[in-house]
Design a protein around this nucleic acid. Structure first.
Lengths: 367, 367
DNA sequence: TCCAATTATGAGAAGATGCGACGTAAAGCT
DNA sequence: AGCTTTACGTCGCATCTTCTCATAATTGGA
């Protein structure tokens, strides 16, 4: 029970109202003083004071004085999204993606780099740093221009940003990933599980925009489940929430085995299935069954509104979804909606950006 | 995004400070003005104003003027827990328990009534109302003295307090349980799943007091799982979170079948197991295995800190826990702690009390 | 070109709240 | 009875918000 009796003087009011003004400014784009005051639920004078404060902190700026309407031209303000930036990284077994985004979360730079599955940890880290600094330099940011950074990776990542279990990436287990990335830019650094970050991205701007309880199924080469409840990430005590590896689910089939038995290239099967090929559809059905088995455990446990399917198998598209819906309907009392991931391969880095922004908004913007 | 720009004037400060004062008053018991001010982080004057407000609302009272210390006697204030009451009910297939509690959550009246498994819904409801009103009348409460009421029952209960699925109680499906109990006392009425309420009770005052992420396993005649994350109940979109009934878990055994095969009375087996009887221990191990199977799904999905075991099988005590720990350790990467329920048969009604209090604290006390 | 209409600004007054300081009251102790 | 101790109560001041009203800067039409 904190945040109650810390400083309930008028300074708190001021902070609250500045926060409300900043929120209104970020939500509604460039606005006049009067519009901002109305949006924030404040008087014009109060909004003005708040904006003076924000301007001094570099977060707001008075912009183009007017546009063609009757009456005295209104003062317009805009949010200075370029006042700070965050870095989001996806460090996978085979590829690395770095993104640089401004305070609006708009991605201004991004770099893909290829990695090797067997690459040692130090080399992979160096590659990730190169991808990230390339973005930062391309944007011409000064030292201290990165306010927070987050890495997403496969494996179990604990609250402190340390990888506690990683089976896919050599030398990864025990690595303080969050600490490393923070040191690169002299800013707070975080790390999280890839499926969890993908879930965050979908909730932020993707298929799960209007949903607060969702399960993300990362299928394919990297597998895992992400869990968002009440709009917040659930990683569990040790960060291993959603790691179903050892749950003895009856009748589960490994996707790679299924695809192996099919004897055709995955992409080929997916296209054939979308064209209506019976044999390919049967393969997709078996894949869907496997995904639904895993997802059903999460669905039965948390009863979410939506299941978002991402990762390699999601390239099978609508036929896969349709079969997953059917299988989930058999396995669950109240089957949730099922949707495809919006962002595909970029979702993990995008979720990392969002997580870094969460920190910035809370700590530096005081939101 | 609300609660930002609603009324950020000084009245908000006042509400916040009154809230802080009330919080300090409830936490620390009867205290002097100065102590209260310090605990709430306010000046004495501000605390005084807040207390005047609370006194007017009947929530605080100036009590015994002094005790034997040097100096001018301090004014002492106490929280008037008797200003309001809540009702918590446990309506099960065979028994009904009603509790009346004051604003501190202290149970002042309680009544058990026997029901029959085959009793029609209307009759069961009438019995529940009788149990509850008996408590209210015994306490001599005036009309309007009950500020909120909650019922716990087996089955799936949705957010609105309606029973959407009930297999154990005839006529229960579709019943607006929350609405009924609210109408009895002319107050807000709520209903929730029994295992969930038991989890709430354990988190409130039981084995899970110091833990915010927990899974409650209600074992035995009534089965189910309760889920608390971040200290808050997770019921899911439709209220069916934790209903694993249709999860195809390999190697799961029905407890009643296990006990049936054992050929002895359950109570007898539990006692023998606690005395070290090998055969009885084997039965307990099979039961523990079944419970752990179900619990493991929840544990793997949400990675909680603690699993609390309640319900009939929990009477097997420490041997059951010990076996569950062993089985969970096999099934989970990071096995959580396992503990026995503190409250036994009263946990559901107690959780109902707590849920009613949650509503009262939020809506009537403005906490 | 000038004037009315329109819209927003800017300054001042009033109301509410919180806090620090200082004098005062009420007890115990010698 | 007087001193010490502890807490009370009042006063004044600072902060913050809102309301009001006069003023400024445009547009559009006569």
């Amino acid at each position: 029970m904190r945040a109650l009796g810390v400083t309930n003087d008028t300074a708190l009011l001021r902070r609250l109202n500045t926060r409300a003004t900043l929120h209104a400014l970020r939500q509604g784009g460039p606005q006049t003083l009067t519009q901002l005051a109305r949006a924030a639920g404040l008087s014009r004078q109060t909004a003005e004071v708040a904006l003076a404060d924000l301007t001094e902190r570099g977060l707001a700026e008075e912009s183009s004085p007017t546009e063609g309407r009757a009456g005295r031209p209104a003062r317009r303000f805009r949010f200075r999204a370029e006042a700070g930036h965050v870095v989001g990284l996806d460090v996978g077994p085979r590829r690395i993606l770095a993104m640089l985004a401004d305070l609006n979360g708009d991605v201004t730079e991004q770099r893909w780099l290829d990695a090797d599955e067997h690459m040692p940890a130090a080399e992979r880290l160096a590659l990730a740093e190169r991808a990230a600094t390339a973005c930062v330099e391309a944007a011409g940011l000064a030292r201290g221009g990165v306010w927070a950074a987050t890495v997403g990776t496969s494996g179990v990542v604990d609250r402190s940003g340390r990888v506690s279990v990683s089976t896919l990436i050599p030398g990864w287990t025990g690595l303080d990933l969050g600490g490393h990335v923070g040191r690169w830019f002299g800013c707070p650094g975080f790390a999280a599980n890839d499926a969890n970050l993908a879930a965050v991205a979908e909730h932020w701007r993707g298929s799960a925009r209007h949903v607060d309880d969702l399960v993300y199924v990362l299928s394919g080469y990297r597998a895992g489940h992400g869990l968002l409840l009440d709009g917040r990430l659930r990683t569990g005590r040790t960060g291993s929430a959603g790691e179903l590896g050892r749950l003895p689910l009856a009748g589960w089939e490994d996707p790679s085995v299924v695809l192996g038995e099919a004897g055709r290239d995955a992409e080929e099967i997916f296209q054939a299935a979308q064209a209506g090929d019976e044999q390919a559809l049967a393969v997709v059905d078996r894949l869907a069954h496997g995904l639904a088995r895993g997802a059903s455990a999460l669905v039965l446990v948390v009863d979410p509104e939506l299941v978002v399917v991402g990762g390699g198998l999601s390239r099978a598209g609508e036929p896969l979804l349709e079969r997953m819906r059917a299988h989930l309907a058999e396995m669950c009392l109240n089957p949730p909606e099922v949707a495809l991931s919006t962002f595909g391969e970029e979702s993990i880095a995008l979720g990392a950006v969002r997580m870094a922004l969460d920190h910035v908004e809370q700590e530096r913007l005081g939101l």
